[in-house]
C-alpha cells in the first residue's frame, strides 16, 4: 500500500479518537493533587528505603548478578501478582461477585489465586473481562486449558502477601500495593519479597472487568539476580523456557501446568545450587 494511504488507514484505526470520551469519571483535581502528593512522597520514601544497605542475612548467599531478560521478569511478575494470604483463603473461601467495591474484587482475585481455586477465579470475571489481557471466563484467543495452566503457575509461585494497601482511582478502579513473597525470586536472589502494584476494575454488575499487569518494585539486587538468571536459563535449561512460553496461548500447551511449574522450579533450584557452590 502507498505510504500515505497506509498512514490514513492507521489514522482511521485510532482506538480513541475522542480523548474526552475515554475519561469515565471526572476526578476532582484537588483530590487528585492530594493523592499525587501522597504518592510522590511514598515513592520518595521507597527510594530512600531502597538506598539503605541490605541486611547481611539476605545478601550473604548471593553474588550480585547482572542483566535482565523478559523471561524471568515475566515469570517473577506472574509469581508476585498472586497471593494474598493463604490463611484467609483457606478459612473463608473465595468471595464471589457481586462486589460492592473494586477493592473487594481485587482481594477476592488474590485470595482465589493463593488458594489455587481456578473455578472460583473464573467466576470473578464479567463476560469479556480480562486478566492481563486474557479472558478467564470466556474465550477469545486463549483457550481454557492455557488459562488454567497459567493460573496454576501463578498460584504455585507465591508464598504470601502482606501489607495490602488500596487507593481508589475512580469509582470502579482501585490500585492496590502489597508485599509478596515469591519462592522463585527467593531461590534466584535470596530475597523473594517485593512490593507490587496492581489495578482492579469492576463492571456495573460488580464483577471484575479488568486486572492489570502487576508492577513490581524490585530492589537493585533482585533485578540483577533476575537478569543473571535470565542469561543462565536459555543456556542451561532451554526446555524450561520453551515450556513456559507455551503457557501464554500462542503455541499448544507443552505440558500440564504443574509440569511447567516443576520445570521452572527445578531450573531455579539448579541455579541456586550453582550460586551457592
Amino acid at each position: 500500500m502507498k505510504p500515505d494511504a497506509a498512514f490514513t488507514t492507521l489514522s482511521d484505526a485510532n482506538p480513541i479518537p475522542d480523548a474526552a470520551s475515554f475519561v469515565e469519571t471526572g476526578l476532582v483535581s484537588a483530590a487528585f493533587l492530594s493523592a499525587t502528593k501522597e504518592r510522590s512522597e511514598r515513592m520518595e520514601t521507597l527510594e530512600r528505603t531502597e538506598q539503605t544497605p541490605t541486611p547481611a542475612k539476605k545478601a550473604s548467599h548471593w553474588q550480585p548478578l547482572v542483566a535482565v531478560a523478559a523471561f524471568v521478569i515475566v515469570l517473577i511478575i506472574g509469581a508476585g501478582v498472586v497471593a494474598v494470604s493463604r490463611g484467609s483463603s483457606d478459612a473463608a473461601g473465595t468471595p464471589a461477585p457481586p462486589f460492592d467495591t473494586p477493592q473487594a474484587a481485587g482481594e477476592a482475585y488474590l485470595v482465589s489465586t493463593v488458594a489455587n481455586d481456578f473455578a472460583a477465579y473464573q467466576t470473578l470475571f464479567a463476560a469479556g473481562g480480562t486478566d492481563w489481557g486474557v479472558t478467564p471466563a470466556g474465550s477469545t484467543e486463549t483457550d481454557a486449558e492455557h488459562i488454567e495452566a497459567r493460573f496454576a503457575w501463578i498460584s504455585a509461585t507465591v508464598d504470601s502477601i502482606d501489607d495490602i494497601d488500596c487507593e481508589p482511582l475512580s469509582e470502579t478502579t482501585v490500585r492496590c500495593s502489597f508485599m509478596a513473597v515469591d519462592p522463585v525470586l527467593d531461590r534466584i536472589s535470596g530475597d523473594g519479597a517485593a512490593l507490587y502494584r496492581q489495578n482492579f476494575t469492576i463492571a456495573d454488575d460488580g464483577s471484575l472487568v479488568s486486572v492489570s499487569l502487576p508492577a513490581p518494585d524490585f530492589s537493585e539486587a533482585q533485578n540483577e539476580a533476575l537478569q543473571r538468571f535470565n542469561e543462565w536459563v536459555p543456556l542451561n535449561r532451554p526446555e524450561a523456557i520453551e515450556l513456559f512460553n507455551t503457557l501464554w496461548g500462542s503455541d499448544p500447551l507443552g505440558a500440564s501446568g504443574e509440569e511447567i511449574v516443576a520445570s521452572l522450579f527445578d531450573a531455579a533450584d539448579d541455579y541456586a545450587a550453582l550460586q551457592q557452590g
Binding site: N14, P15, I16, D18, A19, A20, F22, V23, L27, F32, A35, T36, R39, S40, M43, T130, G133, L169, S170, T173, R175, R197, N199, F200, T201, S210, V211, S212, L213, A215
Partner: peptide, 26 residues
C-alpha cells in the same frame, strides 16, 4: 489529563492506562 489518558489508552488497556497516567502526573 484526558489527553494523557487517551495517549496511554491507545497503547495499553484501560486499567494500565489509568495507572500509567497517574504515574505521569506523579
Amino acid at each position: 489529563y484526558a489527553d494523557v489518558m487517551a495517549y496511554c489508552g491507545r497503547r495499553v488497556n484501560r486499567a494500565d492506562a489509568e495507572d500509567a497516567t497517574n504515574e505521569v502526573f506523579v
